[in-house]
Simulated scan of single mutants.
Amino acid sequence: MDYFKKLGTANLLMLLLCAVIILVAEYLFLTGDQMYGIFIGLWAPTLLGVMIYLKLIDHGGK
């Protein structure tokens, strides 16, 4: 439980959003919409990259 407090609410919500994006992309890919599944599947790593970038900027300012 302490880990979630340390992680922060915003980061936890972003990680949950990434998990939902991955599940939706897998569903689309497996139901026959491969191109849409791949397109939406690329949102999760992009979102994680933005999170890492913002965390690096935040730690660089301190």
Rank of each mutant, 00 (worst) to 15 (best):
P45H: 05
G61M: 07
G32K: 00
L56V: 13
F29Q: 05
L54E: 11
V20P: 12
M51L: 14
K62W: 10
A19C: 11
D33W: 00
K5L: 08
V24T: 05
L42I: 01
T9N: 10
A19E: 11
H59F: 07
K62D: 15
A19R: 06
V24G: 12
I57T: 09
L12S: 05
W43Q: 08
L23D: 14
H59T: 09
L15Y: 07
W43R: 10
L13G: 06
M1Y: 10
L17Y: 04
L23Q: 14
A44I: 01
F4T: 10
L28C: 07
G32N: 00
I52S: 15
L47Q: 04
D2E: 08
A25I: 00
T9F: 08
I21A: 07
F4E: 06
L47G: 05
I52F: 14
L47R: 05
P45Y: 13
L30Y: 05
L42M: 07
I22V: 05
L23K: 10
K62C: 08
I21K: 06
G37D: 04
T46Q: 10
K55G: 14
C18W: 13
G32D: 02
L16D: 12
L56R: 11
Q34I: 03
L15N: 08
P45I: 06
L56G: 12
A10I: 03
Y53Q: 10
I40F: 09
T46M: 10
M1E: 09
Y3K: 14
L28V: 01
L13I: 00
A10N: 02
M14R: 10
L13R: 01
V20R: 09
V50F: 15
G41H: 00
G60V: 09
G8H: 06
L54Y: 13
D2C: 12
A25Y: 01
L23A: 13
M14Q: 09
L48A: 14
L16R: 08
L48S: 06
K6M: 14
M14K: 12
I22P: 07
L28K: 01
I38H: 03
F39E: 04
L17F: 08
E26I: 12
G37C: 01
M51Y: 05
K62G: 12
Y27H: 05
I52Y: 15
T9A: 11
Y3H: 08
K62Q: 10
G8Q: 03
M14C: 07
V20D: 14
T9R: 05
M1G: 15
L48C: 05
G41C: 04
I57F: 04
L15V: 13
D58S: 02
A19N: 13
L42F: 01
A25K: 00
V24K: 09
Y3E: 14
E26W: 10
C18T: 11
L15T: 08
I57K: 04
F29D: 04
K55D: 15
T31D: 15
Y53A: 11
V50S: 09
G32R: 00
Q34Y: 01
V20K: 08
H59L: 09
K55F: 07
G32H: 00
T9K: 02
Y3F: 13
L47T: 00
A44F: 04
